[in-house]
Write a protein that binds this DNA or RNA. Structure first.
Lengths: 186, 186
DNA sequence: ACCGTTTATGCAACTAGTTGCACAAGGTGG
DNA sequence: CCACCTTGTGCAACTAGTTGCATAAACGGT
């Protein structure tokens, strides 16, 4: 149940409309909690019904009209409660690793090209994170807020670094493998 | 749509009953694709209905009686197709990083203890992976199947290594932070 | 003979996330 | 002036995964 809390965080950082939130999810927050605009609109409705946020009164509510929300005290309290509450880490689910394991049984045909593609995507993402780091976190800043946000960004950078390195190793390994046939023919 | 393929892979490695599969998911496969026994039974039913697997004839089918499955040629073909098919990487969703970002706004109270707990869990998982590596992948093996499986295990080891290091850095940062109050009081 | 635990299979209801589409307002170009 | 594109909001149906519980056989003790 993290989406509502992701939205509360985003709205505390800056009151926004549904579409603005969607865009901000596509950029910063979505890097570790993605959401589509439909999820966001639905959740905004629930949060408003629960009294955690409210529409900014200035704007008239009509379809096709921008409608911005701000967080109410109850929303801030709920976010603080959730942040402090202990949560178990969810097990990862990674289809790519699964495919590699399947390839050990049915053959590696076709996989290599996709590994290469993933490598490129992760390299691009890594470059993007590094740009953000240079732009938003020049050396010498140390406000609490900056510190925490930088820490989150570092996680992103280190994760992408891991993937690029692992994929390069995988491709190097593939180069030495016999070919794409099954290791256990049917 | 990875669960059916995870099951096909497991069944190709060794025909099994629902409960045996559940146990194997708790150990090896579940490290990167977890599933509960209910998911597995449901999926076994679908796979059988679709003609991708079949119950081993030897055993009598009755409630409370073991029922093992094996993969049919159509199942192997489907798995090979899926393995070779290109797939986009899904964006990660990580509540812990989200909580850190929320903490930048509502305060870090309570978070540190959970970071410590996560660190312990990841250290334990890392140790487990390293044991498996020493036990199952002694230096000098290089069959194709071993190579691929080792690669998958290395991903697990490197991921857990990343998390332990990142969490240690986070805790070190927390130690220098003022205290648990919000950076932007309500 | 009975009771409780373990092994094994399974249904039903719920929660979360995704996909596909619909609708409205406002601007732009032919 | 109207057809089309963009911006913005939203519903409905679907897919995937989780939680809680039910059922049944086998086994071990008392």
């Amino acid at each position: 149940m993290s989406l509502p809390h992701a939205i509360l965080t985003a709205l505390l950082e800056k009151p926004s409309s549904g579409l603005e939130l969607t865009r901000r999810f596509d950029r910063s927050i979505g890097y570790f909690w993605s959401a589509t605009h439909q999820q966001i609109y639905r959740e905004l409705g629930k949060l408003e019904a629960d009294g955690l946020i409210r529409a900014l009164p200035s704007e008239q509510p009509a379809r096709g009209q921008k409608k911005s929300y701000e967080v109410l005290p109850a929303g801030r309290a709920e976010l603080a409660r959730w942040t402090a509450a202990s949560q178990d880490p969810k097990p990862h689910r990674d289809p790519l690793l699964l495919r590699l394991r399947a390839a050990a049984v049915v053959g590696t045909a076709g996989l290599e090209a996709d590994l290469r593609r993933h490598l490129e995507l992760h390299e691009r993402q890594l470059a993007e994170y590094q740009e953000i780091e240079q732009r938003d976190f020049p050396p010498g800043r140390d406000g609490t807020e900056d510190r925490l946000r930088h820490l989150v960004l570092r996680a992103g950078i280190d994760l992408e670094t891991f993937w690029t390195q692992w994929l390069r190793r995988a491709l190097a390994d593939f180069a030495e493998l016999p070919a794409g046939e099954p290791t256990r023919p049917a």
